Computed example of a mutant assay.
Amino acid sequence: MTETVEIEELDRKIIRLLQGEFPLVAEPYKVLAEEIGITEEALLARIETMREEKKIRKMGAVLRHREVGFTSNCLCVWNVPDERVDEVGGRMAEHPRVSHCYDRNRTPDWPYNLYTMIHGYSREECEVIAAELAATAGIEERCMLYTKKEWKKASMRYFME
């Protein structure tokens, strides 16, 4: 059963801020803090507290990979022995061209349990990266699913009411 966690109004404001455009200035957190009428120190303290309380898990940029030249993207799914998933996933996640690495449940008609998103400048480069990952992890069985069309590229947005 999931536990319901109450989010204070100040924390909601901070979460809204962090979901938006990040100011490209020398002191971005100061600019964000001013938007909601608190100090930079108070903002940073609340962010750290929310991380410790597991109210927020991570902060990061969303890369529009095609705009920076990565024209080939591949979801590479792997059949990894269950007892090696943490080890193999950790190794694959370290590769600089892997943006996502997830452990997923198998199904009777789908044997794959580790998913990596590979970005390259060509299909051939994605194939080379997948071969590198396979060699590094000692895992060969994989299926490469190439992106044909992207309909949405956005992160979840919370407290936007």
Results as ranks from 00 to 15, higher is better:
M1F: 10
M1R: 12
M1G: 15
T2H: 12
T2A: 13
V5P: 07
E6T: 13
E8Y: 11
E8D: 15
E8W: 10
E9F: 13
L10C: 10
D11E: 15
R12A: 12
R12W: 07
R12K: 15
L17I: 09
L18K: 02
G20P: 09
E21G: 11
E21H: 12
E21F: 05
F22Y: 14
F22N: 03
L24D: 10
V25W: 06
E27K: 14
E27T: 14
P28W: 10
P28T: 13
Y29C: 01
Y29H: 03
K30L: 11
K30T: 02
V31M: 06
L32R: 09
L32S: 10
E34S: 15
E35R: 15
E35Q: 15
I36D: 11
I36V: 14
I36N: 11
G37V: 10
L43A: 05
L43K: 04
L44D: 09
R46K: 12
R46N: 07
R46A: 02
I47S: 05
T49N: 12
M50F: 08
M50I: 11
R51D: 04
E52K: 15
E52C: 04
E52N: 11
I56F: 07
I56D: 08
R57H: 01
R57E: 03
M59D: 02
V62K: 05
V62T: 12
L63K: 00
L63A: 00
R64H: 14
R64G: 10
R64S: 11
R66K: 12
E67H: 06
G69N: 08
G69Y: 08
F70L: 15
S72P: 08
N73C: 09
C74I: 03
L75G: 06
L75W: 07
C76R: 05
W78I: 07
V80W: 03
D82Q: 08
E83S: 10
R84K: 12
R84C: 03
V85N: 01
V85Y: 02
V85D: 02
D86V: 09
E87Y: 01
E87M: 02
G90K: 06
M92L: 06
M92S: 01
A93V: 00
A93E: 04
E94D: 00
H95K: 00
H95I: 00
V98K: 01
H100N: 07
Y102T: 04
Y102F: 15
R104Y: 08
N105L: 14
R106V: 14
P108Y: 06
P108F: 10
D109H: 13
W110P: 04
Y112W: 04
Y112N: 00
Y112V: 00
Y115H: 15
T116E: 07
M117H: 14
G120W: 05
Y121L: 14
S122Q: 08
S122M: 03
R123V: 07
E124H: 13
E124P: 07
E125A: 04
C126S: 11
C126W: 02
E127H: 00
E127S: 01
E127L: 01
V128C: 05
I129M: 07
A130V: 03
L133E: 11
A134E: 03
A134K: 00
A137F: 01
G138I: 06
I139Q: 02
I139N: 05
I139P: 04
E140M: 00
E140L: 01
E141W: 00
R142F: 10
R142L: 12
C143T: 05
L145D: 06
Y146L: 02
T147R: 09
K149W: 09
E150R: 15
K153H: 14
A154H: 06
A154I: 01
M156S: 08
R157S: 13
F159G: 13
F159Y: 15
